[in-house]
């Protein structure tokens, strides 16, 4: 699915200026913990759906070679985080849909998770 289609489907706004909206996104991870972002956003170019708007999420995106970040619940990062994303060429989008709706709408159109299930039960 192209980033443009994701934006349109979720009535999202691209907040990092002139990103390549023709970028193809195949896999998605949704997480609100940085360690989960690092553990489960496998496969370069994945989309991260999150409510984390701190600069660390951009560093994590850089580490994982994420294709884009989509903030849910109408969240918007501050200027410093935005600049960091632009420097690292990570496209940022924001939607007013909540995480469940966001994931559900993408799933319905064929988008799939980077990892379906973890190996072990965690405490």
């Amino acid at each position: 699915m192209k980033l443009r289609e994701i934006r349109d489907l979720l009535d999202a706004e691209l907040i990092t200026g002139d990103a390549n909206l023709d970028k193809e996104i195949k896999y998605v991870n949704a997480a609100d913990l940085i360690s989960d972002v690092l553990a489960y956003s496998t496969g370069p170019g994945a989309l991260l759906i999150t409510g984390i708007i701190h600069p660390q999420v951009i560093y994590a995106a850089n580490t994982m070679d994420l294709g884009a970040i989509l903030f849910v619940r109408g969240k918007r990062p501050n200027e410093a985080t935005l600049q960091l994303a632009i420097e690292n060429q990570v496209p940022l989008l924001t939607t007013r849909y909540i995480m469940f709706e966001t994931c559900g709408r993408l799933y319905q159109l064929g988008m799939r998770a980077c990892i379906e299930k973890v190996k072990n039960v965690r405490g």
Partner: peptide
Amino acid sequence: QEGYSTASERIHELGFGAGMG
């Protein structure tokens, strides 16, 4: 052990402290 964490509430608020590090 996965999931074990002593993180403070402040650390959790920032999205860390999942015990996965």
